[in-house]
């Protein structure tokens, strides 16, 4: 009896300590995502934690603009491709693709393109029956004003968060994983194409360090390996990961320092990473990303 009580206590303590987000507890009572593979089922909490830590494609889109590269509409997915998408897998991946393209157009303040891409986002979301969680009219209005970028980014981010929560609650976390994977593939496609046209050390560095994000996506996709399309996408990303293994990353230890500047606390991070990536490896990454992306959008 004592052993049972002790085990119950340990298990409940573990579950409690995992519940770092107050919102998650509401989700936690829902069914744990069905085991779509032979592996242990993945809980909504674990998916949420993974999704939360994937960086926004906006950081890379913003860097592309900041290095002085002109806006390139030809890099974006065409709305005309929409008719080719005919199942949840493709709608979810391309919802991610169009969302990244929308962010890229917004960063460059290309409001007409942003509105066209918003149609793509809406159509994909409607097909997935999650359109009701996007405030399309509000986003459309914000996209028209160049001085409301922050509000636009916030509304878009909050809408996507709500979509992810609803998908997880309705046991469709595989769709969440595809949306974020599609978004990442698209931003990598934009970044590698720009890096080929205008070599830039900062851009190459951020591309090289995407292995960290790629590994997170591979781990997530691996949970759905009994689904053939997810398995194929997983395997494609594993091949890309093998190319990333040729990138050399060196970590240099150091202590962080805190200083006060104009009443703000500014941290100087002591530890640094240094990247070595040859042109050949960048070319390989570019080609592989383009190959994966073309399968997604065409």
């Amino acid at each position: 009896m004592k052993k049972i009580l002790a085990a119950t206590f340990i298990i409940s303590s573990f579950l409690f300590s995992c519940d770092s987000d107050p919102d998650v507890s509401k989700v936690q009572n829902d069914t744990t995502t069905k085991a779509k593979s032979g592996k242990a089922p993945i809980s909504p909490q674990v998916i949420k934690e993974f999704v939360d830590k994937i960086p926004s494609p906006m950081v890379i889109s913003s860097l592309i603009r900041d290095i002085g590269v002109d806006y390139d509409q030809t890099l974006l997915n065409s709305i005309d491709n929409e008719s080719k998408y005919n199942n949840d897998y493709r709608w979810a991946l391309n919802l991610g693709v169009f969302s990244t393209d929308l962010g890229y157009a917004n960063i460059y303040e290309k409001s007409q393109d942003a509105i066209n891409l918003l149609v793509g986002v809406k159509d994909m979301a409607d097909q997935l029956k999650i359109g009701q969680y996007f405030e399309f009219e509000k986003i459309k209005e914000l996209a028209k004003s160049s001085d409301k970028l922050d509000e636009l980014l916030r509304v878009t981010e909050e809408n996507l968060q709500q979509v992810n929560t609803k998908l997880q609650e309705s046991d469709r976390s595989d769709m969440t994983v595809l949306i974020i994977t599609g978004g990442w593939i698209e931003v990598m496609y934009l970044a590698t194409n720009v890096a080929q046209k205008k070599p830039n050390k900062d851009l190459e560095s951020i591309i090289a360090e995407q292995k960290i994000v790629l590994d997170q996506l591979i781990t997530l996709l691996n949970y759905y390996d009994s689904m053939p399309k997810m398995r194929t996408l997983h395997d494609e990303l594993v091949e890309l990961d093998k190319i990333f293994e040729k990138v050399k990353v060196t970590y240099i230890k150091g202590e962080s320092k805190q200083v006060e500047k104009d009443g703000q606390l500014v941290i100087e991070q002591g530890e640094k990473s240094e990247i070595e990536m040859s042109k050949e490896v960048l070319d390989e990454i570019t080609a592989k990303v383009a190959s994966i992306r073309n399968k997604v959008v065409s």
Binding site: S20, D21, E49, K53, P55, V59, D150, E157, E209
Partner: peptide, 27 residues
């Protein structure tokens, strides 16, 4: 700064509220 993410915090001192995020070098 540009907006990236928001966190709504309703908690108590008993346990810190934690989130994870991937930060990029040079940003």
């Amino acid at each position: 700064y540009k907006f990236l993410k928001s966190y709504k915090l309703e908690g108590n001192a008993a346990k810190p509220i934690e989130y994870q995020y991937t930060l990029s070098k040079g940003t």
